[in-house]
Design a protein around this nucleic acid. Structure first.
Lengths: 381, 381
DNA sequence: ATCCCATCCGTAAACGTTTACAGAGCCAGT
DNA sequence: ACTGGCTCTGTAAACGTTTACGGATGGGAT
């Protein structure tokens, strides 16, 4: 671990000043001969520029941080997977913070921006408190928040559209003839929890279905909690014919419980998850799930941040990502799910009238206010 | 984004020198009065120390990088999940590199250590080339490699034990009466690919089973490739009664193909995956899988690196993590898998003699040379 | 020969810290 | 009153870059 050569070492070796070395290495106009000597010395010594020193002078670190609750959650994972290549292509390194959704931790990260170890931050808090808003306002570097933040918070914001998402799912279930659609939610004091609860009520109303408290159960966003919640639901309201779950993990828990209870999915109870994680496709029966576009949200956030880093001041933007419904066996049955799969693979439309009908539900509804991000494939603007 | 206060600003405000400010902030002995003035000024101005400047002076960045092929692969994810908290507890930030298993990229990362933007690196290359060894030898910061690297490479090394792992799986299958056990591998020029191929031959031999080329198929470590490979296998050797897959993704592909071919799992064909990722538990039927201890390897790597960062020079160490077999429905059937689950939950041993027998296979075999890491729970030494 | 301008390069300052060193002030001991 | 030693603080250098500025050199125009 010998001390590496610096610009000084090279200057001495090449018999020039450090200024010349710097100029050559940065491609500024220099006499041919000097260029040769410097490059030669740099090559011989295996010189690598010290990024810390460079950062100190340039006030840029070429690093960006992503702070999320838990890297183990497939939703955040999907985000990281998109964020990483976007940043990388722009020459930024990615730094990861796992905060366990701990508010104090998240605030620490925001304050930590003062240390200037990153040029910007993408953050996806589960809860947004007063403290968050204050810290965001005082942040010493650009921040993009994934997850709704009040207007006027002064930060770029990428939003999912739970409202439309839940609506898609309930329309789909309604179309399949389900009328007792229960809702298994995560904590009501989280951003997604609150949004999805409201969305559920709204969607019921739009469909002319009554809101029945007995059909709503709250746990946490994990498989075990989901299982417990669903068990409670079944005990209380045995006649449910569909479960809308606030994320895929809860839905997996639901599948466990239903299987154990001898209820067939989807014949007796249809199940819809949310987030459309990798797990949904692997589960059995494969899980119909509302995609809230985690990947697209990640990409949009990265692009917003890059834009801000390059173009400096400008009005904060809000980008909303359209949800989609990924229809699989847990609502339409194994047979049709396979047909759909096949159709997707071969690029043809599914055959049956029933498939046709539910296909309509895949159409995303009106976009809400704000910009709307397009396909994952296309860029931001 | 106003320019933040520096140590100079504080010095002026408090009417002292920058040296005093630094001393106070670092807790060096100082007169009471000065301490008060400095702290007051720092508080008022909302001072946050600049970590870049600090790094330049101290030659430490308090950052560590983890370079892996693809953050989307659950194996690496499991590692990150363990690495992150360990590093964090020691005050290090985690930086992520996704190299797509591209050799040039990996070498770039190693060379990049000369930029001194991190204090150390954990790297998990899929292939280890001559170039890797050279770059490792020349690395300007401590590196821990996850994945076998030749003795004498001079780096700390955390290894899986594929040999024992495959052996556990084949013993298990043999115990269930399977005799035509096929092997679906990933590319032979990767470290795990090569290790697992050798392990398969060895395990067969130990069981007195013949090695049949027709029973071996090579694809890539992904679901689609696995499916293709298994299809080819079935076309060629319809009488296989078990599939040993070189990772879980391949095994998932195998489940797809078998289902489509109308082969029951495990009645007609038993399937074993490898890595015991989250997907294995979710799949249907749930997937028996050899855990190579991704989580434990991640943790061990982080601890090795920390140890080296704190204690400086010392002989490179090799840590080998013991494999285990997670027995699930894809080999023993849904019924028994559920019983095992239940037993695990209630902490009692499973009932049936058959369960008893396969339980023995769960015992890890002799540990190979080198240190052996214990449970995920316990520390390194 | 003189002057001007262009080109190239070196000196030095700056980025924000930490820290070696020495000076200032003070008290106690003679 | 002087000295020695202690405590506290300020000055300055250093970490490895980038860059403003001005000096040196040389060539062409007068």
């Amino acid at each position: 671990m010998a001390e590496g050569p610096t610009i000084n070492t090279i200057a001495r070796h090449a018999g020039v000043s450090i200024a010349s070395v710097s100029r050559v290495l940065n491609g500024l106009p220099t006499r041919e001969e000097t260029v040769r000597r410097v490059l030669r010395a740099a090559e011989e010594l295996g010189y690598v520029p010290n990024s810390v020193a460079r950062s100190l002078k340039s006030r840029r670190t070429n690093q960006v941080a992503f702070a999320m609750a838990d890297i183990g959650n497939p939703v955040y994972l999907a985000m990281v997977r998109e964020i990483q290549p976007v940043l990388r292509a722009a020459g930024y390194r990615l730094l990861l913070h796992s905060t366990d959704a701990d508010v104090a931790d998240e605030l620490d990260v925001l304050r930590g921006l003062g240390e200037r170890y990153v040029d910007g931050l993408i953050m996806s808090p589960l809860r947004v408190t007063e403290g968050h808003l204050r810290a965001l306002a005082a942040a010493r570097a650009p921040v993009v928040v994934i997850g709704s933040v009040p207007e006027g918070a002064g930060v770029d914001n990428v939003r999912a559209d739970s409202r439309t998402g839940v609506r898609l799912a309930l329309d789909h279930l309604y179309g399949l003839g389900r009328r007792r659609v229960a809702f298994v939610n995560g904590p009501a004091d989280t951003v997604p929890g609150a949004a999805r609860a409201a969305a559920y009520r709204e969607a019921l109303e739009a469909l002319g279905l009554p809101y029945d408290e007995d059909l709503v159960e709250v746990g946490d966003f994990y498989r075990e909690d989901g299982a417990r919640a669903v068990q409670a639901l079944l005990d209380r309201a045995g006649d449910v014919d569909a479960l809308m779950c606030a994320n895929d993990l809860i839905a997996l828990g639901a599948l466990d419980v239903l299987r154990r209870a001898g209820r067939r999915v989807p014949e007796d109870v249809a199940v819809v998850g949310m987030d459309d994680t990798d797990l949904a496709a692997v589960a059995w029966p494969s899980l119909t799930s509302v995609s809230l576009g985690s990947a697209r949200r990640g990409r949009a956030a990265a692009e917003l941040l890059l834009d801000r880093l390059e173009n400096g001041e400008r009005e904060p933007r809000v980008v909303t990502v359209e949800p989609r419904l990924a229809v699989r066996a847990s609502t339409v049955g194994v047979r049709e799910a396979e047909e759909r799969d096949e159709a997707l693979r071969t690029g043809r439309a599914p055959r049956t009238g029933r498939a046709q009908r539910t296909e309509e539900a895949v159409q995303a509804a009106e976009a809400p206010a704000g910009e709307v991000a397009g396909d994952a494939g296309e860029g931001l603007r």
